[in-house]
């Protein structure tokens, strides 16, 4: 899942040309992904993880980095 998300970011929504993205890189702060890209990322994660992310879960705490997204998904499967 980690690789799928980073590949998706690098090839589909990153606003600059990047070769790698680290799991702890801040996805929200520095203009790497715009708000439209973020919505696409959420849709991608929903499709890959086969879950529906409720809009109230679209928070900084859940989507700040790839690590945060993975942690969020892990919590979803245990609950």
């Amino acid at each position: 899942m980690k690789d799928k998300i980073s590949n998706y970011i690098i090839h589909h929504i990153a606003k600059q040309k990047i070769d790698t993205i680290h799991a702890d890189d801040d996805l929200l702060a520095d203009g790497l992904i715009d708000s439209l890209g973020m919505m696409k990322l959420v849709a991608f994660v929903e499709k890959e993880a086969q879950i529906k992310i409720p809009p109230e879960d679209l928070t900084l705490e859940n989507f700040m980095t790839i690590d945060h997204i993975l942690e969020y998904l892990a919590n979803q499967s245990t609950t």
Binding site: D26, L28, A29, D30, G31, I33, D34, S35, M38, P55, E56, D57, L58, T59, L60, E61, F63, M64
Partner: peptide, 14 residues
């Protein structure tokens, strides 16, 4: 409002 909040509406609301 910092950039990051504008991408995460639930956090912006808070």
């Amino acid at each position: 409002i910092p950039e990051a909040y504008l991408k995460m509406p639930a956090s912006l609301s808070v």
